[in-house]
Simulated scan of single mutants.
Amino acid sequence: MLCDRDRQLILATQGGLPLVPDPWQALGQQLGMPADEVLARFQRMQEMGVVRRVAAVPNHYRLGYRFNGMTVWDVKDEAIGRLGQLVGNLPFVSHCYRRPRHLPYWSYNLFAMVHGTSREEVEKKAGLIRDVLGEDCHGNTILYSSAILKKTGLRLKKDGS
Rank of each mutant, 00 (worst) to 15 (best):
residue 5 R to Y: 04
residue 6 D to G: 02
residue 6 D to C: 02
residue 8 Q to D: 15
residue 12 A to G: 06
residue 12 A to T: 05
residue 12 A to W: 01
residue 12 A to P: 02
residue 13 T to R: 12
residue 13 T to V: 12
residue 13 T to P: 02
residue 15 G to F: 09
residue 16 G to E: 06
residue 16 G to T: 05
residue 16 G to V: 07
residue 17 L to M: 15
residue 18 P to G: 11
residue 19 L to R: 02
residue 19 L to K: 09
residue 20 V to Q: 09
residue 21 P to V: 14
residue 22 D to M: 05
residue 23 P to M: 06
residue 27 L to V: 11
residue 28 G to P: 03
residue 30 Q to V: 08
residue 30 Q to Y: 09
residue 31 L to T: 06
residue 31 L to H: 08
residue 33 M to Q: 13
residue 36 D to L: 13
residue 39 L to F: 06
residue 42 F to Q: 11
residue 44 R to A: 00
residue 44 R to Y: 07
residue 45 M to W: 08
residue 46 Q to T: 13
residue 46 Q to M: 10
residue 46 Q to N: 11
residue 48 M to D: 15
residue 49 G to F: 05
residue 49 G to Q: 06
residue 50 V to W: 09
residue 51 V to H: 11
residue 53 R to F: 00
residue 54 V to F: 05
residue 55 A to W: 08
residue 58 P to A: 00
residue 58 P to L: 00
residue 58 P to H: 02
residue 60 H to L: 11
residue 60 H to E: 11
residue 62 R to D: 06
residue 65 Y to A: 04
residue 65 Y to I: 00
residue 67 F to W: 12
residue 67 F to R: 04
residue 68 N to Q: 13
residue 68 N to H: 14
residue 69 G to Y: 06
residue 70 M to R: 12
residue 71 T to K: 01
residue 71 T to Q: 12
residue 73 W to T: 05
residue 73 W to L: 03
residue 74 D to Y: 02
residue 77 D to Y: 07
residue 78 E to I: 08
residue 79 A to D: 00
residue 80 I to V: 15
residue 80 I to L: 06
residue 82 R to Y: 11
residue 83 L to C: 04
residue 85 Q to G: 08
residue 86 L to C: 13
residue 86 L to I: 12
residue 87 V to T: 00
residue 88 G to L: 01
residue 89 N to E: 10
residue 89 N to G: 15
residue 90 L to E: 06
residue 91 P to R: 14
residue 92 F to G: 05
residue 94 S to M: 11
residue 94 S to E: 14
residue 95 H to K: 14
residue 96 C to L: 14
residue 96 C to M: 14
residue 98 R to T: 14
residue 102 H to T: 13
residue 103 L to I: 11
residue 103 L to W: 13
residue 104 P to L: 02
residue 105 Y to L: 15
residue 108 Y to G: 02
residue 110 L to V: 08
residue 110 L to Y: 00
residue 111 F to S: 06
residue 114 V to H: 01
residue 117 T to V: 14
residue 118 S to W: 08
residue 118 S to E: 05
residue 119 R to Y: 12
residue 120 E to K: 01
residue 120 E to M: 03
residue 123 E to H: 04
residue 123 E to M: 01
residue 126 A to P: 04
residue 127 G to A: 13
residue 128 L to S: 03
residue 128 L to D: 04
residue 128 L to Y: 03
residue 129 I to C: 00
residue 131 D to T: 14
residue 133 L to P: 02
residue 133 L to Q: 03
residue 133 L to A: 03
residue 135 E to V: 10
residue 136 D to W: 07
residue 136 D to F: 07
residue 137 C to P: 03
residue 138 H to K: 04
residue 139 G to D: 10
residue 140 N to A: 09
residue 140 N to V: 00
residue 141 T to Q: 05
residue 141 T to H: 01
residue 145 S to A: 09
residue 150 K to T: 15
residue 151 K to H: 07
residue 151 K to W: 08
residue 151 K to M: 10
residue 153 G to P: 02
residue 157 K to V: 07
residue 158 K to A: 04
residue 160 G to H: 07
